[in-house]
Design a binder for these strands. Sequence first.
DNA 1: GTTAACTGTGTCCGGTGGACACAATAATGT
DNA 2: ACATTATTGTGTCCACCGGACACAGTTAAC
Lengths: 233, 233
Amino acid sequence: MTELLWGSTPVPSRGPKPAVTLTGIAEAAIRIADAEGLDAVSMQRVADDLPVTKMALYRYLPGKAELIAVMTDLAMGTPPERPEQPWRETLHTWSMDLYDGFSRHPWLLLSTVGQRPIGPNEMSWIDRGIRALTGSGLSGSEQLDTIVVLTGHVRTLALQTTTMPGGRAGLTEEALLSSFTAMLTDHADRYPSLATALQTAEPDNQGLQFGLERILDGLELLITSRKGSASGY
Amino acid sequence: MTELLWGSTPVPSRGPKPAVTLTGIAEAAIRIADAEGLDAVSMQRVADDLPVTKMALYRYLPGKAELIAVMTDLAMGTPPERPEQPWRETLHTWSMDLYDGFSRHPWLLLSTVGQRPIGPNEMSWIDRGIRALTGSGLSGSEQLDTIVVLTGHVRTLALQTTTMPGGRAGLTEEALLSSFTAMLTDHADRYPSLATALQTAEPDNQGLQFGLERILDGLELLITSRKGSASGY
DNA sequence: GTTAACTGTGTCCGGTGGACACAATAATGT
DNA sequence: ACATTATTGTGTCCACCGGACACAGTTAAC
């Protein structure tokens, strides 16, 4: 599977011209997933959108898992270019860019779950994030862990707020709040702390920003403490 | 679907005794998911482990989605009782408890993705988390957002480190690191920042702790600033 | 004892991912 | 020009999935 994501297509010489390309297949799959959700992406459905039959797809892909992997990396794309800025601002916009990516292709939240090979585009996202932290004084592991925390938070919030065509997921914070409150009217006694918290809760849709600021605050604390103690290090 | 999770079973009077119970079905499904992964949980497979046929299950559940919902809430359980402590310590152990839960039932990471009804047990986890923040000076929304950040982080790390029987997911941090490095030996020039970060990276498996401390640090910063400015509020 | 409510079963359907044999095509070596 | 051969495209088949539905079996209430 790794070859499909990273390797170059070894243009064939003999035989009939291929009717489609790997990228073409992935693009068709992306169109379907965008419009009808990831569940709608089946080999048959993809083939229907191309001048080819279902089984012909297996000439380009070993199986569906590989299709998902390829379309995932393709849809992820590369992070947009941004002007140079201090690490905190850079990571902030980087996170927002990532969030936008998930908003554009909500099914990415489903296809990027579980063990899977990492494609070149996904790798470039990581690289860009790390770049913001070079010279921060953080160790390599800490830089990587930072990216993990940020992507995790962005994923979580995107999962809660984004609407998916396939029906799965997608609640605004208001809807989430109201469904909570509805559930609690019957069982307020079982969840006293949650009940009182909901009374003073406003649907501000600020979950993404809130968590982001907390994480960046905590990070800043660590970085400045490092800078302060070890000067020439 | 909500009734199944929250409502009580309206014990039937007439007719033959039910051969199984809803909880029994859910427990069987949990056993299968624990041993063979969530994908192995099919109506047929569950029925095979019980003294009923596949279609009999539909007498207890409208469909598979409901089965997943019920078994998810059941496997989630209630958070373990912990002695009273300051909010930071409480949230820390709460997060670790949650992580343990995901480790025990890795498929929860897959079944808790997307829009779905929230069960009573899951609700109790939220309530317990919120409880730690009562009296912290944070607003209801902020308390909820805090729980979101923490669960998100725990989920992310559990997803990366836990091994799933179904084959999906499950890399130790070492394995992740080595696969990264392997990928980069060929494309170090494309990802310069990541490459240098990996050189100084050690597989310490500290991702969970690192992120947790950052988040809690950021939170503490907010809480103390609130306490300092508005005294009697 | 009859009735009515409820549980359990067998059959059928469309859809899925995929194996495999086979037909069509086109560039190559002679 | 022609036969060779690698490669692509197709049709058929399979097991499995979730689920609809009609029907048989069981048991408590009247």
